[in-house]
Amino acid sequence: MTGENPVLVVRDLHKHFAGGSRLRGGRHTVRAVDGVDLTIAPGEVLGLVGESGSGKSTVGRCIARLETPTSGTVELLGRDVSRISRREMRPVRRDVHVVFQDPYSSLNPRMTVGQIVGEPLRQHGEGERRDRTRRVGEMLERVGLREQMRTRYPHELSGGQRQRVALARALVLGPRLLVADEPVSALDVSVQASILNLFLDLQRDLGFSCLFITHDLSVVEFISDRIAVMYLGRIVETARRETLFADPQHPYTQALLSAAPVPDPADVRRRERIVLSGDLPSPSDPPSGCRFHTRCPVAIDRCATDNPPLTGVTAPDHPVACHLVTAESGRPRVAAP
């Protein structure tokens, strides 16, 4: 974190959805996000990682105001945007853009590449037509696409080329914050590498901050400055990338890292594999206390009744939500079964 004011501050964010129907046993509330705190500094990439269904994408959608939070605040550049109207949000959207998981479904099939990338400029009244054309060409060149691509349609492009177009569209206005929601998970591995390298080059050159949402630990280790681990609607651990991978504190983080693929077979044989029991509980009926206690191999009685706060017990910049993490004993050691 730098001494500058943060680009994004999220406090006690909640997003609940109505689920079920009266014909099928009645209505219920799905607690997709249930008390999330995040901070992103200028020029920082924060990786948000967790299992599918943990609420990562919903956090990103609330930050970009594609969803309205149930409660809590989302401060973008010092302004709370969690409750403002669509009309008030319109100028704010210059500073926050989204790159979605599927580049094909996120691009308008009726528009050419040039029209897609230039649409944000047109919507926000940026410059004359000739100026917009020039800026689109410069942005296409930045993301590695030839000028001839300008007249092509999305169906004429490969998956990697489509994601480059999506990046160009998201960055053409020079936003301060980019929300990248699984931007490489739909691509081949070789294409993933080129897109991630491009992303890092763009981030270094343009200086934008980013919330990078993924379930791939190798990707989040490569791309992120800090990492937040999410489980069933809540953040359970946040730390610098190097710290998290070298010394994970929360039992859930330890289990995630033990499941990550390792290229060296010798390392695979040496390390302990932590296998969690059961499935991710339903967000419509989350467990009491610590939400991870139903699957945690070292849970104690207190875990079932008291919700642990996210606090920096062992280090101020490494907050963990676990009753078993103390300043004296450090992290709980989870043994493989």
Rank of each mutant, 00 (worst) to 15 (best):
130 R>S: 09
179 V>G: 10
204 R>W: 01
14 H>E: 13
131 D>C: 05
217 L>A: 06
67 E>G: 00
78 G>Q: 10
293 H>P: 03
241 R>N: 15
327 A>E: 04
202 L>K: 13
321 A>Y: 15
172 V>E: 01
286 P>S: 05
206 L>F: 13
336 A>H: 03
334 V>W: 10
125 G>W: 05
75 E>C: 01
333 R>H: 00
278 G>N: 00
31 R>D: 00
172 V>T: 02
48 L>E: 10
307 N>K: 14
183 P>N: 04
86 R>S: 05
42 P>V: 08
63 I>L: 11
264 D>H: 11
31 R>W: 01
66 L>F: 04
164 R>L: 07
147 E>H: 06
311 T>W: 06
208 F>D: 13
196 L>Y: 01
56 K>Q: 01
107 L>I: 08
76 L>F: 04
27 R>T: 02
290 C>Y: 07
197 N>L: 01
322 C>D: 12
88 E>K: 03
115 Q>N: 08
63 I>K: 04
216 D>H: 14
167 L>H: 10
149 M>D: 02
213 I>H: 10
186 A>V: 05
182 E>L: 01
210 C>H: 09
335 A>H: 13
130 R>N: 08
135 R>D: 00
14 H>V: 12
83 R>P: 01
259 A>E: 11
35 G>W: 07
228 A>G: 15
50 G>M: 01
281 P>F: 15
111 M>T: 05
61 R>Q: 14
243 T>K: 15
154 P>Y: 11
220 V>T: 10
168 A>S: 08
201 D>V: 11
168 A>K: 07
203 Q>M: 06
149 M>G: 00
279 D>F: 14
256 L>W: 00
333 R>Q: 02
130 R>L: 11
25 G>H: 09
59 V>K: 07
62 C>V: 11
118 G>Q: 13
258 S>H: 00
111 M>A: 14
148 Q>D: 15
66 L>M: 07
240 R>P: 02
130 R>I: 11
174 G>A: 13
244 L>G: 08
259 A>S: 14
6 P>Y: 06
160 G>V: 07
69 P>G: 13
181 D>S: 06
6 P>C: 03
179 V>T: 07
278 G>W: 02
184 V>D: 14
104 Y>H: 07
309 P>Y: 11
242 E>D: 15
68 T>F: 02
158 S>W: 07
237 E>H: 10
55 G>C: 02
117 V>K: 15
167 L>C: 09
268 V>N: 13
108 N>H: 06
106 S>V: 03
262 V>N: 12
264 D>M: 07
192 Q>V: 11
137 G>T: 00
170 A>V: 05
316 P>N: 15
92 V>A: 03
250 H>Y: 07
86 R>F: 02
42 P>N: 00
232 L>H: 15
236 V>Q: 12
